[in-house]
Each structure stands twice: as C-alpha cells, then as structure tokens.
Amino acid sequence: MVNTRPLSVEETNRALKAKRIRAAIWKHVTKVFIFVMLALVYAPLVYISIYSFTDSKVMGEWGNTGLDIYVSLFTEADGLELLGAARNTAIVAIASTIIAVLLGTLGAIGIFYTRNKLWKNALQFMNQIPIVNAEIVTAFSLLVLFVSILKLQTSLFTLIAGHVILALPYVVLSVLPKLEQMDPSLYEAAMDLGATQTRALFKVVIPDIMPGILSGFLLSITLSLDDFVITAFTKPANIVVMGEEEQFQTISTLIDERIKRSSVPKEIRPFTAIMFGLILLVMIGMYIKSVVDAKKERKLLKGEK
C-alpha cells in the first residue's frame, strides 16, 4: 500500500530542511573534490616551478637557492637553445592555427549547407579520421607521403601541414554546433535585402558562429603546443635563421632528445615556471571575465523586470 496521507506542515518543513542540508553538504564535497583534482593536475607544474628556484643539475636535488637559472635561460647556450625552440614552437602553433581555423570554419559552413546527404556524410567521415586515428599513424602516413612519394625533405611546410591535420577536425567540430543553433532565416533575410552571398556570409553567418570559431582557435593552439609525435616525424632537421643554418627543434623534440642523452637543460625549469605563470594569468583573466559577465547578466535580468 502506498501511503497517500498528506504530509503535515512540520513533516514538510523537516523534509525540505533535510534536502537543503544534503544539498549544502553535496556542494561542499564537490567543491573540495574538484579542487583536489585540479591540484593533482597542476602538481607537476608546481613541482617543476619549485625547482626553478635552485641551480641543481636535476630535479630531486636542491642546490643553491636563487634565481640563477632564470638568468641563464637568457644568457647561457642551453637557455638560448631552449628559447630558440620556444620561438619555433610558437611559429608553428600560430601558423597552423591560422590555417586550421580558416579551412575549418569554411569547411564547417560548407558541410552544414551541403544538401546532398551522401556528400555531407563523406565530408563528416573524413573529418572524423584524424580524431580517431592514432597520432603515430597520422604522423607516419604523412612522412610516407612527403618523403617516399613526393621525394620532399621534411620542412617547416610539412610540419605545419601536420599540425593543421591535428587541429582542423576540432575546429570543424567547434563551429558546426554553432551553425546548427543559428537562425536560418537571417541569411535569407540578408539576401532578400540585397546583400551578396559573400557579404551575407561575413556580416551574418560569421559573427553568429564567432564563439565556435574562437573555441576552435584556442583548441588549435593548445593541441599544437602539446604535440610531440607529429612534430618529431615531420619537422625539418635544419632551418636557416638570418642567413645561418641551425638545428631545428621545438620544445618537445628538444627535451625528448635531451632526456635520451640524460642531459635535460636545467633552464627548462624556469621556462616552464614562466609558462605556468602565463597559464595562471589566463585563468585569473577567465575568472574575472566570468564574474563580470555574470554581473552584467544579472543587471539585464533586473532591467527586464
């Protein structure tokens, strides 16, 4: 038998109070849990940053405390090599991101407005390949194409192409949902009011899907900065900088090579600490922006009332 007797006022209050208490406990537990998880995720970065304040050769040993290796990052040969690698990493990340965002945004618009079902599916399937494929297979297959078939040397071009493949599918996947959310009649309205197709595209469609393009942009940079396998397979051996030939390394390939020789430059510690500082700044910036946005939203809501 189900008890259908109506609850008394006290019982209702008690039940509601218990629910509120449970909600409060849950809220605190989840907060602590997320905080602990974030702390774990950032622990290696904190660890490496702590060891940036000592000049010992390896981490795990503590030498003289001070900022000595911050100075040698900008003065010693090892440090300068690291900065050169950082410059290369940045060039590749920026170039590949620009290309990936352009191709990906246009690709997503194209896929979305394709009426032929078969063609649409084919494009989406192609987009899915690099996402599910193992990075090493992508990297190796590119190497085969460039070196064995086209008889090209690996170069900055092959490296950037590799990074575009890495990021392009994610740009498409970030933009597509925004297209689906868009009001389709806006484009038609712009056309009916006399805009050309290109103008309607730039004035109506692109502004509307901008958040998706921005996510794709950020994701693209992130994936490029984090990459090692594709870089190692498709990077050029040497590069000419200001008339002088020098070895081409990115941060990841340089560190990997030095790990193999057990001579990791200690300057990687201050370098990573600086990157970590940059990440913290971005985090603070994001947090402030979210607080400001929330305030604006509340004001808007109040205004409507």
């Binding site: 795990g60 984090d226 790990i259 990440i279």
Partner: peptide, 19 residues
C-alpha cells in the same frame, strides 16, 4: 583542466616522473 596542455606533454611527463 585543459590549460596545463600549454606546457608540452613531454615536459609535463618528465616533471611527473621526477615528482
């Protein structure tokens, strides 16, 4: 949770190993 990826995973893995 995604931002640590700005430090390349080769470096992060090395730091994790030492830690």
């Amino acid at each position: 949770f995604v931002l640590p990826m700005w430090v390349n995973f080769v470096v992060r893995t090395m730091a994790l190993r030492d830690m």
